[in-house]
């Protein structure tokens, strides 16, 4: 009995040690880039990566923000992300409601279209959507990105919200119907309030996805002044080839919004991830 207990104790300690070791390894890229961005390039060149910082400098952050133009790119990311998020969430509640609360011919086909579309390698959309935005006259504008993000994310949002709405008992909406509510009232007054927790989860996840997009910005924008921070950072990389302190400082600044969302809304973020996979 004694040995079983000590064995268990040892294995527990062993797991703990491994976990701590793992976390330390996992955090290295964060820690080292934070350390790098507070130093000057000359200092690293002279004393090497592993030397201890001699001074604490904000110059790299200032350079990334001002000359690297993050002061323009970061707001652009919000201008693109927020409307896309609001639109795709609103529209997907409509389609999710239809697919969850009605039985009609073709329902499974439409559900399949949304679910299948969400898994597409979006490379297959690049060229036609590039052409489409030209035809709509919105190429190289925020609207091009808002359009594709809203549309492409409809697949995932519809899928997840529909799965959530299915779990709301039909008796709820049927009772409302007998009380004389019409379809739209059932959607807006009965179902929507119940879906808010799921929407919070989806919104958190979608925010980071849209905010972190790179390829669509690359394809649908030409003007530098419209670029979101991902594309802007890639530009910065070309601009400051030799000065890594500015690049890591810029990368950290660019990561702040999603890190804040993650820290503040962690619970929703995880819910969103698992909701998308549970069914």
């Amino acid at each position: 009995m004694q040995s079983v207990r000590t064995n268990r104790h040892i294995s527990k300690i062993l797991i703990y040690v491994l976990l701590i070791l793992g976390v330390v390894i996992w955090m290295i890229p964060f820690i080292t880039s934070i350390m790098t961005s507070f130093r000057s390039n000359d200092e690293i060149m002279t004393y090497g990566f592993l030397s201890l910082p001699k001074t604490l400098k904000f110059d790299s952050f200032v350079a990334a923000w001002q000359r690297g133009n993050l002061k323009q790119y970061l707001p652009n990311s919000f201008i693109i992300t927020v409307p896309s998020l609001v639109l795709t969430l609103f529209l997907s509640t409509l389609s999710a409601f239809a697919l969850a609360k009605y039985k009609f011919k073709g329902r499974n086909v439409i559900l399949g279209i949304f679910v299948g579309g969400m898994m597409l390698p979006f490379q297959i959309l690049l060229l036609p959507v590039f052409r489409l935005t030209e035809a709509f006259g919105i190429y190289d504008s925020y609207w091009a990105l808002i359009g594709i993000h809203t549309a492409f994310q409809l697949g995932f949002c519809t899928f997840v919200l529909r799965n959530y709405m299915v779990t709301i008992p039909d008796s709820v909406s049927e009772a409302a119907r007998i009380d004389g509510c019409n379809d739209f009232t059932i959607y807006s007054k009965i179902i929507m309030p119940l879906v808010i927790p799921a929407m919070a989860a989806v919104a958190t996840l979608e925010f980071t996805w849209i905010f972190n997009d790179y390829i669509w910005a690359l394809i649908l924008l030409r003007s530098e002044k419209l670029m979101p921070v991902t594309a802007g950072l890639a530009k910065l990389q070309g601009q400051y080839v030799m000065d890594w302190t500015v690049i890591t400082a810029g990368a950290l600044l660019a990561a702040i919004p999603t890190i804040i969302i993650f820290v503040a809304l962690q619970r929703y973020f995880i819910q969103g991830l698992t909701m998308g996979s549970n069914k």
Partner: peptide, 14 residues
């Protein structure tokens, strides 16, 4: 939660 661009850049430095 980091964009792949951010990941790519900080790792390029490593």
């Amino acid at each position: 939660v980091l964009s792949l661009v951010v990941c790519g850049l900080i790792w390029s430095w490593l």
